[in-house]
Simulated scan of single mutants.
Amino acid sequence: MSITKQTSDALARRLAAIPAEVAERIKPAIAKSVNEVAADARTLAEASRDDGDLIGSIEATAPGGTTPAYGSDGQRKLHDLQGAVTAGAPDVRHAHLVELGTRPHVNGGQFAGTQHPGTEAQPFLLPAWRLNKRRVESRVNRAIRKAIREASQ
């Protein structure tokens, strides 16, 4: 087959269209992965259950979505190929303390001057990611390969 101006232009158009097609086909894989990580984080947070508010505050944000306003870096719009799992709410501001633990310290506020012994970390977000990382990477890589294959046909 010879390359003509027409076939060259057609190929250029198809190559330019691949990123958008690929992105659209990858989004479901990312969304499914984010939901799985959030579900595992909720399961792992059961160990720290007091009243269940923390578990109920774990939220998955799909690609292109907007994270909750109470996140550590505030509300932000995610890229079309980015998902997020957040924990916490306006009345549940202790997710980071459960995840990372606290050192012994002197209390302020209502109990000012008393000594707090610190709390042991009960991680749930990072272990949830570690449990799912390989599966997420495989799923997304499969989606990329499939999308590129289908887009180039």
Rank of each mutant, 00 (worst) to 15 (best):
M1N: 04
S2E: 14
T4G: 13
T4F: 05
K5V: 12
Q6K: 08
Q6P: 00
Q6H: 07
S8R: 15
S8M: 14
A10Q: 15
A10I: 12
A10E: 15
A10F: 11
A12H: 09
A12S: 13
R13Q: 15
L15K: 00
L15P: 02
L15Q: 00
A16R: 15
I18K: 10
E21R: 15
E21D: 10
V22P: 07
E24K: 11
R25I: 04
I26Y: 06
K27P: 01
P28A: 12
A29F: 03
A29Y: 01
A31T: 12
K32T: 04
S33V: 05
S33T: 01
S33W: 00
V34C: 12
V34Y: 06
N35D: 12
E36T: 04
V37G: 00
V37M: 02
V37C: 03
A38G: 04
A38R: 13
A38E: 06
A41D: 05
R42A: 13
R42E: 14
L44H: 03
L44D: 09
A45M: 02
A45Q: 05
E46T: 09
E46S: 05
R49C: 04
G52H: 04
G52A: 06
D53K: 12
G56R: 14
S57P: 08
I58H: 11
I58K: 02
E59N: 12
T61K: 05
P63F: 08
P63W: 07
G64E: 04
G64A: 02
T67G: 06
P68V: 05
A69L: 12
G71L: 00
G71H: 06
D73I: 03
Q75M: 04
K77E: 11
K77N: 01
H79R: 08
D80F: 01
Q82F: 00
G83P: 02
G83V: 07
V85W: 10
V85S: 06
T86P: 02
T86E: 05
T86N: 07
T86I: 00
A87F: 10
G88T: 00
A89T: 07
A89Y: 01
A89M: 08
P90A: 14
P90Q: 13
V92C: 09
R93H: 06
R93V: 09
R93W: 09
R93M: 08
R93N: 11
H94V: 10
A95V: 02
L97D: 00
E99L: 03
G101E: 07
R103A: 14
P104S: 11
V106R: 08
G108K: 10
F111I: 02
A112D: 14
A112H: 01
G113K: 14
G113P: 11
Q115E: 14
Q115V: 15
A121H: 10
A121N: 11
Q122G: 08
Q122P: 04
F124L: 11
L125F: 08
L125T: 13
L126W: 04
L126P: 00
P127F: 04
A128P: 04
R130K: 15
N132P: 03
R134Q: 15
R135I: 02
E137F: 06
E137H: 08
E137M: 07
E137D: 15
S138V: 14
R139Q: 12
N141S: 13
R142Q: 12
A143P: 00
A143H: 02
I144S: 03
R145Y: 11
R149T: 15
S152M: 11
S152Y: 09
